[in-house]
Amino acid sequence: TFVALYDYESRTETDLSFKKGERLQIVNNTEGDWWLAHSLTTGQTGYIPSNYVAP
């Protein structure tokens, strides 16, 4: 799992909003700078900017 370093507000319907400190499970990280992730807090799935999270 990864932890959010910053808050992120989604800009498209495929993005995932999250708050700093939220735990995220990475589903697919082969898309370059945008990873498909599942929030362990909200249960939602969407794309996140990879530079906003850390292991």
Score class of each variant (00 low, 15 high):
46 G>I: 01
41 T>W: 11
34 W>A: 06
25 Q>W: 13
33 D>G: 13
21 G>L: 03
11 R>G: 10
36 L>A: 03
22 E>V: 02
54 A>C: 12
34 W>D: 04
52 Y>P: 03
42 T>M: 03
17 S>M: 05
33 D>K: 09
16 L>H: 02
44 Q>E: 13
6 Y>E: 09
30 T>L: 12
35 W>F: 06
35 W>R: 02
34 W>P: 06
24 L>P: 00
39 S>Y: 01
19 K>A: 07
51 N>A: 14
7 D>G: 04
17 S>H: 05
8 Y>P: 00
32 G>S: 13
33 D>N: 11
27 V>H: 08
13 E>F: 07
13 E>D: 14
48 I>M: 02
16 L>F: 11
27 V>Y: 10
44 Q>I: 08
18 F>Y: 02
10 S>P: 09
22 E>H: 08
19 K>F: 06
14 T>S: 13
51 N>F: 10
27 V>S: 07
38 H>V: 15
12 T>Y: 14
43 G>Q: 06
34 W>L: 09
34 W>V: 08
16 L>D: 01
43 G>W: 04
13 E>V: 10
29 N>V: 14
50 S>V: 08
36 L>N: 02
6 Y>I: 07
17 S>A: 10
51 N>T: 11
27 V>R: 07
9 E>Y: 10
29 N>W: 12
22 E>C: 04
47 Y>D: 03
11 R>Q: 14
54 A>R: 10
29 N>T: 14
19 K>E: 06
37 A>T: 02
21 G>M: 03
37 A>N: 00
25 Q>I: 15
4 A>N: 01
3 V>T: 09
23 R>C: 14
49 P>K: 07
20 K>A: 12
6 Y>H: 09
5 L>H: 04
29 N>Q: 13
12 T>G: 14
4 A>Y: 00
38 H>A: 09
2 F>E: 01
39 S>K: 06
43 G>V: 02
34 W>S: 07
49 P>W: 05
5 L>W: 04
37 A>W: 01
2 F>W: 15
55 P>W: 07
26 I>D: 00
22 E>G: 01
19 K>G: 05
18 F>D: 00
9 E>H: 09
50 S>L: 05
52 Y>T: 07
54 A>T: 13
27 V>D: 07
51 N>I: 09
15 D>C: 11
53 V>W: 05
26 I>M: 06
43 G>Y: 05
52 Y>G: 08
23 R>D: 05
46 G>H: 01
29 N>P: 14
16 L>K: 02
44 Q>K: 15
22 E>I: 01
2 F>I: 05
22 E>L: 00
54 A>D: 09
19 K>M: 08
50 S>Y: 07
35 W>H: 03
31 E>Y: 13
4 A>S: 05
3 V>N: 04
35 W>Q: 04
28 N>E: 11
40 L>F: 09
9 E>Q: 11
2 F>A: 06
29 N>I: 15
48 I>Q: 00
18 F>A: 02
36 L>E: 05
